[in-house]
Simulated assay, not measured.
Amino acid sequence: MKFVLILVLFNLQSGSEVITAEFDDMQACEDAALRTFQGVDAAVELRALVPVEGATVLDGTMIAYNADGAETGMYSCSPSRSTTLGE
């Protein structure tokens, strides 16, 4: 099974950046997300997103926080429904 990484880096100055990629397993997907956020802030902390009541989000969505506690982005690793991501 393949997993799709959907990652958003928050940037108030230039706008948010969306990154997508496909991986062979969940751990590789999560590791890639962590490395991406560590490139912004080595002291990144990842926490599960707790949606507000009535909101719908992808299962397993995580929020990244920098050393000051500010949100720097979010990601989700989800099973791929297609083997042709990006084509």
Rank of each mutant, 00 (worst) to 15 (best):
A32L: 02
A42H: 06
G15M: 12
A21H: 01
L46W: 09
G39S: 01
V40S: 04
D41M: 09
C29Y: 03
A28D: 01
A64E: 07
V44G: 02
T20L: 06
A33G: 13
G60W: 01
A55N: 04
I63T: 02
P79C: 11
L12D: 12
D24A: 04
A43Y: 05
A43Q: 13
L5C: 04
I6G: 15
R81G: 03
A55H: 06
T20N: 05
Y75C: 03
M1L: 14
L85R: 02
K2H: 14
A21N: 01
A21K: 08
E53T: 15
D31Y: 00
D68P: 13
Y75G: 05
T72H: 07
L46G: 07
S82Q: 02
M62G: 05
T20D: 05
Y75W: 07
L85S: 12
A48R: 14
S76V: 12
V52A: 10
A64P: 11
E17N: 08
F3L: 06
L34W: 02
E53A: 11
Y65M: 11
D59I: 06
T56M: 11
T72Y: 06
Y75L: 00
Y65E: 03
A21D: 09
F10P: 12
G86S: 02
A33Q: 11
S16M: 15
T83E: 13
F23Y: 11
S82H: 09
S16K: 15
V8D: 06
S80P: 05
G73I: 00
N66P: 09
A43M: 08
S78G: 09
D31C: 00
A21L: 03
D31E: 01
Q38G: 02
I6A: 12
V4M: 14
L58M: 12
G60Q: 11
G86C: 03
M62K: 12
L9I: 11
R81T: 10
Q38R: 09
T61N: 03
